[in-house]
């Protein structure tokens, strides 16, 4: 791997378009770049209006886990560079939560590595979502389908 592996866990907002432009500029020679942006949905798991979401995390462990995932992706696929950004703290509906970008010589590796990183971020990074709606705040329950998705990569 000749490019860079980078990950950031941050409270500050980020701009996905600007991140992708910077990532692309820093991946010369790439034949394929895939990016994924996750946003705070405007409704909760039960379909009720959501005003905001607070992401709690485990400082220290989160950064280590996310960094380890980017290294694992680079080990499994032929990647030129990888970037993961994950926010914590209070986020308004519509705000970007997570950003994954992968650059590779050919598209398959970039697609698969980005898919893998999202599945692992869902199941192996110590974040917990608290949804805020009109009726108060509620912790989001983990989904079995996320575990099943992550199990595909064993």
């Amino acid at each position: 791997m000749s490019g860079s592996i980078a990950s950031r866990v941050q409270a500050e907002p980020f701009e996905p378009g600007a991140e992708l432009a910077r990532f692309t500029k820093a991946a010369p020679g790439a034949g394929a770049i895939v990016s994924f942006t996750g946003l705070v949905r405007g409704e909760d798991h039960a379909g009720r209006a959501l005003t905001a979401m607070t992401l709690e995390h485990y400082p220290g462990m989160t950064e280590a886990q996310v960094h380890a995932m980017t290294e694992e992706a680079a080990r499994r696929w032929s990647l030129l560079s990888v970037l993961v950004i994950h926010r914590f703290g209070r986020l308004e509906a519509g705000a970007p939560i997570v950003f994954v970008a992968t650059a590779s010589p050919h598209r398959r590796a970039a697609f698969e590595a980005a898919d893998f990183l999202m599945d692992w971020l869902k199941t192996k990074a110590p974040f917990w979502k608290l949804e805020e709606g009109a009726e108060g705040a509620e912790w989001v329950a983990a989904k079995a389908e996320d575990d099943q998705a992550a199990a595909r990569w064993r």
Binding site: M61, M118, K122, W128, A142
Partner: peptide
């Protein structure tokens, strides 16, 4: 010590132990 551990894992009193629900990030 900030690494996921099964509940049957052994620890020592100098370790950092944390309990939490299944994670819901991403």
């Amino acid at each position: 010590n900030q690494v996921f551990a099964d509940l049957d894992s052994a620890f020592t009193p100098t370790d950092e132990v944390a309990f939490f629900p299944p994670v819901t990030g991403g």
